[in-house]
Nucleic acid binder design. Sequence first.
DNA 1: CAAATATAGTTAGGTAGCTAACAGATGTCA
DNA 2: TGACATCTGTTAGCTACCTAACTATATTTG
Lengths: 155, 155
Amino acid sequence: MVANGTTDPQHESAGAWAKKYHLASRTVMESILRPHDLGPTQWYVLHHLAMVGETSQRDLAGLLQVERPTLTGVVSALVRKGLVVQEPSSTDQRQKMLRLTRAGAALWRKLPDPIALILDTAFDGIAASDVETTAHVLRTATGKLQELLSKGTPS
Amino acid sequence: MVANGTTDPQHESAGAWAKKYHLASRTVMESILRPHDLGPTQWYVLHHLAMVGETSQRDLAGLLQVERPTLTGVVSALVRKGLVVQEPSSTDQRQKMLRLTRAGAALWRKLPDPIALILDTAFDGIAASDVETTAHVLRTATGKLQELLSKGTPS
DNA sequence: CAAATATAGTTAGGTAGCTAACAGATGTCA
DNA sequence: TGACATCTGTTAGCTACCTAACTATATTTG
């Protein structure tokens, strides 16, 4: 989307470019995962379960920074495909623990790592210090926006 | 979302931060616009019609970088609320021209500018040169990802 | 201990985006 | 001029996210 009053595309704000970068990287990730019939969030769930092991849905929602209802949908898709099992925790009947099935672990081993590919492609050839500056600026900017959100947002 | 093998949140990649920044800014924009019962894309449409005047849906889709079916939905929401009128172009019966109604123009005058607020908040106090570096890095990275997409994406 | 409160997950309904397929209007050219 | 191609917008059906409201369990507390 056009950022602001400015219409010269070369001079759009860092904010507008963050959005475009995000959309492009999501599109790349989707096109890499499509042949495996997985969405990006599904991939992140498998990634976490493969790396860390059994995890509750609650914890996973926090780690993946999505809301619980979103994770409900993602997890039920993975369960439907037989990649993940979901069972009540033995200590707290409210919580459901997730882990990979044998099929899920087997699929994981064959899967490419879209995040590594994206980062390698996107930032290849750019000075490391510039990439660091970018991460720093975006981290700071994100912090300020979250601060704005936590204080009531003015209309 | 967690970027990669790394779990230390201070050391996530520029890519991960671009995503977080984007999500935070979208959330701020939504929370500013919610009291006015508008979504971000609806705001951009009003913005354009208020600034530039009568525009065809085709041109608007290009300017806003969304697909035509997406704009169909956004525009029909605005028409339903009585903020925008949609009528066939006199010179090309395929095209529909959009313009603000009196109510749409009146609402526009009362609306805050969420983009200005977000940019002011997010990048306030950060060195202008660093913000420029960020825009440059993200622009370059986005270009590389789009290049990757246009060549067939490997699995 | 019983009642109130908090937490985990689901369901319902919404927004915003996409692609594919289509209808109608316009353009091209043999 | 008539047939074919292209363009514009819509519809249908998908993904992925959100909030609000619900159910069922745990926990806190009077």
